[in-house]
């Protein structure tokens, strides 16, 4: 039913698309380090020869009862439930920054367990609900 011309066009396009997708996949794979926006505490823990001078970002959850404020200085622990990093920061934190919520800190590592941040970003999750529903959920969980 298809003419020869159409057939050859289909074959050409399929080959071109295949080639393009392989190229894009390899490019993205090799750029992976630049594509990820932040590293988790475990990724930092497992990484060998990590630079202490380069600016990086660490992300995870703020550990429960770990936030302590001393004047302008805020320190807290970022956890991915396997490894933890202590973060220290001077300045204002975003409104959504709170315990057991997502956070991304930008700054430099002092060592693998201690991070000096110069920017704190709050990361929220994909759950949206009214406050009263949240309260009801918490009540039924307790």
């Amino acid at each position: 039913m298809l003419t020869k011309k159409v057939k050859s066009r289909i074959i050409f396009l399929v080959l071109a698309l295949l080639l393009a997708s392989i190229t894009i996949f390899t490019v993205l794979k090799s750029l992976e380090e630049n594509v990820v926006y932040f590293l988790s505490p475990s990724e930092i823990y497992n990484k060998e020869n990590i630079s202490l001078d380069k600016k990086i970002r660490v992300g995870g959850l703020v550990k429960k009862n770990s936030i302590s404020r001393n004047g302008e200085t805020v320190s807290f622990i970022i956890t991915d439930l396997k490894n933890e990093i202590i973060v220290s920061y001077i300045g204002l934190v975003p409104n959504l920054f709170s315990e057991e919520k997502g956070v991304v800190a930008e700054g430099k590592l002092k060592d693998k367990k201690y991070f000096i941040a110069d920017k704190i970003l709050a990361k929220h999750d994909e759950n949206y609900m009214p406050p009263e529903v949240k309260e009801a959920l918490e009540k039924s969980n307790n």
């Binding site: 594509v35 926006y37 932040f38 992300g59 997502g102 929220h124 999750d125 994909e126 949206y128 609900m129």
Partner: peptide
């Protein structure tokens, strides 16, 4: 696929939406 600041999708084909029905 990657760590992003943007949160994951709330509406997916495979599971129930994580947005309350009032929203």
């Amino acid at each position: 696929w990657w760590n992003t600041l943007h949160q994951p999708s709330s509406i997916t084909l495979t599971s129930a939406p994580t947005i309350h029905y009032k929203m």
